[in-house]
Deep mutational scan, measured.
Amino acid sequence: MDPFLVLLHSVSSSLSSSELTELKFLCLGRVGKRKLERVQSGLDLFSMLLEQNDLEPGHTELLRELLASLRRHDLLRRVDDFEAGA
């Protein structure tokens, strides 16, 4: 399986429902409101961002910004580990 997708799945499974709600709010300018209403998990949101090329294995800035906004430094370390091994 693609290591970047494994990372996104790992991050998604670590998010609380309130954190997902916050991420959806933060992505309002990037993803349409109707699409965001269908998001049920972090993976749903990340999939939309992947489709729009806002997220890519070599383009993790948005993911970092979102996780920093949540103050999830543990998840930021996972992104660091991914990039160190990528």
Rank of each mutant, 00 (worst) to 15 (best):
H59M: 06
L75V: 01
L26N: 09
M1P: 11
L5Q: 14
E61T: 11
R30W: 07
E22F: 07
K35A: 10
M48A: 14
M1Q: 07
L23Y: 00
S12V: 04
R78V: 09
S17C: 11
L20F: 05
S12T: 04
K24F: 01
L75P: 01
F46C: 03
R71K: 14
L70N: 03
D54F: 14
L75I: 05
L28R: 14
V79M: 06
S18M: 14
L63H: 03
L36P: 02
V11S: 02
L63W: 01
L28A: 15
G58K: 10
S41H: 07
S12P: 02
G32V: 08
G42F: 12
H9F: 05
D2R: 05
S16M: 04
T60S: 06
S17Q: 15
L26V: 05
L28T: 14
G85I: 09
L43F: 15
H73N: 12
D2H: 07
E19R: 00
E22A: 09
K24E: 04
L36E: 02
D54R: 08
D81K: 11
L15S: 02
H73Y: 12
H73M: 08
R72M: 01
G58V: 05
H9M: 09
F82R: 01
K24C: 08
S13H: 12
G58M: 09
L63M: 06
Q52P: 04
G29W: 06
H9T: 14
R71I: 01
D44A: 07
V31L: 14
E61K: 12
C27R: 02
E65I: 11
E61Y: 09
S13Q: 07
L62P: 09
V79G: 00
S17E: 15
F46M: 05
E83A: 09
F46N: 01
D74S: 00
L62E: 04
S18D: 14
E61G: 14
V6R: 15
L28N: 15
P57K: 11
S47L: 15
F25H: 15
C27P: 01
E65P: 03
S13A: 15
P3I: 05
K24W: 02
E61D: 11
S41P: 01
S13K: 07
L70Q: 04
D54W: 09
M48N: 06
E19W: 00
S18Y: 09
N53S: 10
R30T: 07
G29Y: 05
F25G: 14
E83F: 05
S47K: 15
G85T: 13
H73E: 12
L45I: 11
A86M: 15
Q40P: 01
H9G: 13
R38C: 10
G42P: 14
H73C: 12
L5H: 10
V79T: 00
S47C: 14
E51C: 08
S47W: 09
G85L: 10
V39I: 11
G42A: 13
F82E: 02
A86G: 15
H9I: 07
P57E: 15
G85M: 11
S14H: 07
T60P: 11
D74E: 03
M48W: 06
A84W: 09
L50F: 11
L43H: 10
E56R: 14
N53A: 10
R30H: 08
D54H: 12
M48D: 05
E61A: 13
G42S: 07
H9S: 15
A84I: 11
E19H: 00
A68C: 15
L67S: 02
H59I: 04
E37R: 10
T60M: 09
K35C: 06
D44W: 02
L8M: 05
L50A: 15
V79K: 00
R64N: 01
L76G: 03
N53R: 13
M48C: 12
L26C: 06
S10C: 10
L7M: 13
R38K: 12
E83P: 03
T21R: 12
D80R: 07
R38G: 13
H59T: 07
L26Q: 12
R34A: 14
R64V: 06
S47H: 15
P57G: 10
L20C: 04
A84K: 14
D54V: 12
R30V: 08
P3T: 09
A68V: 14
Q40L: 08
E37S: 11
L63F: 05
T21I: 07
E65M: 12
E65S: 12
H73F: 12
F25Q: 15
E83K: 07
D80I: 08
L66H: 04
A68R: 15
S14A: 10
L76F: 02
K24Y: 04
S69V: 08
L63C: 04
D2W: 02
R30A: 06
F25K: 15
A68Y: 14
C27K: 00
L28I: 14
L63K: 00
L43S: 10
L50E: 06
Q52R: 09
L36T: 05
L26G: 05
S69F: 06
V31I: 10
E61Q: 12
E61P: 06
L55V: 11
G85N: 12
L15G: 02
E22R: 12
F82I: 02
G32Q: 09
R78F: 09
R38A: 12
F4N: 01
E51M: 10
R71A: 10
V11C: 06
L7P: 01
L15E: 03
L63T: 02
D44G: 07
L36W: 05
V6G: 09
R38Q: 14
R72G: 00
F25R: 15
G58T: 13
S12A: 09
K24M: 05
G29M: 07
R77K: 11
L43C: 07
R30N: 06
L75M: 04
S10A: 11
T21Q: 13
H73K: 08
R34I: 13
C27S: 07
D80E: 09
R34P: 12
R64D: 03
L23Q: 01
L67Q: 02
L7V: 04
E22T: 12
L63P: 02
V6E: 14
G32T: 10
F25M: 15
L5W: 09
H9A: 14
S18G: 11
T60G: 03
Q40H: 14
R64M: 04
L62H: 06
L49R: 00
S47I: 12
L55E: 06
L5F: 14
D74A: 00
S18I: 10
K24L: 03
G32L: 05
F46Y: 04
L50N: 15
D80Y: 07
F4V: 01
V6W: 10
R38L: 12
S17H: 10
S41Y: 05
S14Q: 13
K33G: 11
L63Q: 02
A86I: 13
R38I: 08
V31M: 09
T60W: 04
T21A: 13
G42H: 04
K33W: 11
V79H: 01
N53G: 14
V11G: 01
L26M: 14
L8E: 02
D81G: 06
S14D: 13
D81A: 09
P3Y: 06
M1C: 09
Q40A: 14
K33E: 15
S17Y: 09
L36C: 06
A86P: 11
S14T: 05
S69Q: 13
L67M: 08
S69L: 08
D80M: 08
L63D: 01
H73D: 15
L20R: 02
R72C: 01
R77L: 09
E22V: 08
R71F: 06
T21H: 13
E56I: 10
K24A: 03
V79N: 00
E51A: 11
